[in-house]
Design a protein around this nucleic acid. Structure first.
Lengths: 234, 234
DNA sequence: CGAGAGGTTGACTGATCTCAACCCCCGTGG
DNA sequence: CCACGGGGGTTGAGATCAGTCAACCTCTCG
């Protein structure tokens, strides 16, 4: 079972190259020690030496940076199968913590080093993951820098829905694992603004929210229009 | 001379792992074809197949994404020695173009692939560059998401100054290679706002601007204070 | 039952955007 | 020589989107 877990197979190819499973399993790296996390529990902190590479087995993590007055910017959320803390530099540039009960698997950086040297395609695979994360960062920068609140929230909901689809879940009903505060810190706005925006979408009939953390997309095309189209050359 | 160029040696270790020179030279990859670019000339576009890896020999490039209505978000600027378009996925996620007269050196992705497989430490080095760029993206996300206009502009000026220092230039006089529009598109604001902010700093005595594209930092500590300190754990 | 976390809503404020005029510089061509 | 036009930059006045502050609501958990 260290080569591949049948349970994980359908998680492969999810969201391009973001998944470690797709890389580790073909390479026989189903190893590494697991750790269970409670919500808000830190995996690593900004400035910590980079000792391990982590992948999410279960639950959701996020990475973030803080300003000295407490303002927090969440860079990314990490779902099951995704890699956190990629890189090889001396220290982590961000903090990473669980936003829900979670399980992470960690691989010592020395093991990663050996893997890269013994199997160059492993290094290649890590590069694919890194470049995928860079692409997502670009998209996020576009959101924060140029999109309005409505556009950011609708783009966020759509990307959440796409992740659910790729994970084989229902395509319209999103179980939102993060709080309004987390969404706000991710989207560069205040939690009140998130709340207002989500409820505005509800009044417009674009979504339904039976519970605060369960959002059902009712009019996906309208949401996509509201997200403000990206300019994809031809 | 393909192993190491004496002229480039003092560029090594600049800004962490961002430089290709530090990697390519030890590895004997001083090769690749050069191309001269005029301002606003595109190196590659979003959605283009990733055929080459580029490094800046001279001048400054930027990478950006566009919305369909023309709004533009610049992700990063790239100075001499830095790598543009890193990654191995199928297509580029961003556009890249020159913002000044520039020269880029390009290495076919197939060559990169062979390098990674023949010399695993090359893959490792590319990972270092990618993780450095991810760290910079995190910092930029923090700027866009959580900092005010004043904070963003002062943080930007300081980071420009640090780049000049690392490049061995004067530590206080910054020759700003980009226009106010470029700065605005990078910092997530309007060019008028950039202008107002820069001039506000001038009235406050924090900087001097003999010419619009020459900024002299007069009170670095005050600028750093205005940037709003990052929370670096102990 | 009380306390706290998470969420919603309202009224007000204000930072930033918008629109517009204007300036300087520089190359071009009549 | 000078008129012209365009790019880049500055400045002002008004509009507005999102932030701020505050009240209140629901749930859950001791």
């Amino acid at each position: 079972m260290s080569i591949a877990s049948v349970n994980d197979v359908h998680h492969d190819r999810i969201n391009g190259n973001r998944k470690l499973a797709a890389i580790t399993e073909p390479l026989g790296l189903g190893i590494g020690s697991s750790r269970r996390l409670t919500p808000r529990e830190l995996v690593f902190g900004e400035g910590d030496p980079r000792t391990h590479l982590y992948s999410v087995v279960e639950g959701v993590l996020c990475s973030y940076k803080l300003l000295s007055d407490g303002r927090r910017q969440i860079d990314a959320f990490y779902f099951a199968g995704e890699v956190v803390g990629i890189g090889v530099g001396g220290t982590h540039a961000v903090n990473a913590e669980a936003i829900s009960p979670a399980v992470v698997r960690s691989v010592p950086i020395g093991t990663v080093d050996r893997m890269v040297h013994s199997r160059p395609e492993f290094g290649w695979a890590l590069l694919e993951i890194a470049s995928q994360q860079l692409a997502e960062a670009s998209e996020h920068l576009l959101n924060l820098g140029k999109r309005s609140v409505n556009e950011r929230v609708s783009a966020f909901l759509i990307s959440l829905a796409e992740r659910c689809e790729h994970a084989g879940q229902d395509n319209a009903a999103i179980v939102v694992p993060m709080t309004r505060t987390d969404m706000a810190d991710f989207l560069g706005m205040r939690l009140e603004t998130v709340s207002r925006c989500v409820n505005r979408f509800k009044w417009l009939g674009l979504i339904e929210t039976p519970q605060p953390n369960l959002i059902i997309l009712k009019d996906r095309p309208a949401l996509e229009a509201m997200a403000g189209g990206e300019s994809r050359p031809s």
